[in-house]
């Protein structure tokens, strides 16, 4: 192969993508770890519920009584972690049916036990003027005197808000990903320009990273492979990805880090270093699945361009490297 995609160029690209993939994988792991530490999902759910229920004053007083009553309801209080308070006690997930049942029960305090549609409607109408009352009235008006439909409408109200809350969570995660990527990039001095230069100038370092990249593309290490469903609404699309191994992280030591030569700003200049960091931050923010897919494609391109070894069947006779590469590509397509 000549021109842009000669072997050295392709190997430098492959090495760079491998670095991006490992950094993005670490970034994702840190993000998940922080989400667990700070109960981000629980806080997000609490914000969504607050947005739904905090606009309802108690009769005669301008308080958020309905929200407090909601959390005091046995259906909800039973889900709070015992001995904890605030976000650490809040559940990460609440079923729409549980939400609707608790809200309907709170709206009909004088009707313990089974209720009718009329009970629910009159209970809501007897609530003091407020956002929750207005919203619930609108929801039951569309229920055609059917209690079951009224409950479904309240569940949909909750689900719609939770969908928006998922959007908030995603945006927050994107922001935190960029911040983590920035800290990781600067901390590890992951300067794209310097990485490219090192890979271009040092064939040994380049070969090491290419070897690791090809290995990552073709194999799954025993203890670290996992299968996940990125979107729970798509049960037909599991994906697998594995965490970086110590071996892989060690391979990065030649291109990352604050070595004596790279720590000296005079060696490369701050403008160039800032540009290199910026490129790395943008790349790492794209996420591990993206770079895993790109890595597989580049490995396949690289393998397709290789000359068959002596004695190896050529693609034209139905076997050999190209066929194997295509099969591997198919397998990796599942993983990506």
């Amino acid at each position: 192969m000549n021109g842009l995609f000669n072997s050295t160029t392709l190997d430098v690209i492959l090495g760079l993508i491998f670095v991006y993939l490992l950094l993005a994988t670490i970034c994702t792991a840190i993000n998940e770890w922080l989400a667990g530490i700070f109960n981000t999902r629980a806080r997000n759910l609490a914000s969504g519920i607050e947005q739904l229920l905090d606009g309802q004053p108690k009769e005669g007083a301008n308080t958020v009584a309905f929200l407090q009553q909601f959390y005091a309801h046995p259906l909800i209080s039973g889900m709070l972690a015992p001995g904890k308070s605030g976000a650490s006690a809040h559940p990460s997930y609440l079923a729409a049916r549980t939400f609707a049942t608790a809200v309907m029960d709170l709206a009909t305090p004088t009707k313990p036990g089974a209720i009718t549609f009329a009970d629910l409607e009159s209970g809501i109408k007897s609530m003091p003027t407020g956002d929750v009352r207005t919203a619930l009235l609108a929801l039951v008006q569309n229920a055609r005197n059917d209690l079951g439909q009224a409950q479904k409408n309240i569940e949909s109200w909750f689900n719609d808000t939770m969908d928006r809350a998922s959007g908030w969570y995603k945006r927050r995660t994107e922001v935190s990903t960029v911040i983590i990527a920035a800290l990781l990039t600067v901390g590890a001095n992951a300067d794209t320009v310097n990485i490219v230069r090192t890979l271009w100038q040092n064939p040994t370092q380049r070969a090491l990273l290419v070897q690791k990249a090809e290995k990552r593309s073709s194999e799954a290490a025993p203890a670290t492979v996992s299968v996940k469903y990125e979107n729970k609404d798509k049960p037909l699309q599991p994906t697998s990805i594995r965490e970086p191994s110590k071996d892989e992280l060690q391979a990065l030591s030649g291109v990352l880090g604050w070595h004596t030569d790279t720590a000296d700003p005079e060696a490369s200049g701050w403008p160039q270093r800032l540009l290199g960091w910026f490129l790395t931050i943008v790349a790492v923010s794209l996420g591990a699945p993206f770079w895993f897919g790109v890595l597989n494609k580049i490995v396949n391109i690289r393998n397709a361009g290789k000359k068959p070894a002596t004695g190896e069947p050529s693609p034209s006779n139905g076997g050999g490297a190209t066929q194997g590469g295509a099969a591997q590509g198919a397998v990796n397509a599942h993983a990506a």
Binding site: A96, R97, T98, N159, V227, L236, P238, Q328, V331, H334
Partner: peptide
């Protein structure tokens, strides 16, 4: 809907979609 529960009887089988996602050479 999402979050709803159902009490069920089930039998296990190998999940070939996950096997396929994991399988490499």
């Amino acid at each position: 809907s999402k979050g709803d529960k159902m009490h069920v009887l089930g039998i296990p089988r190998v999940n070939l979609a996950e096997v396929s996602a994991m399988a490499t050479n």
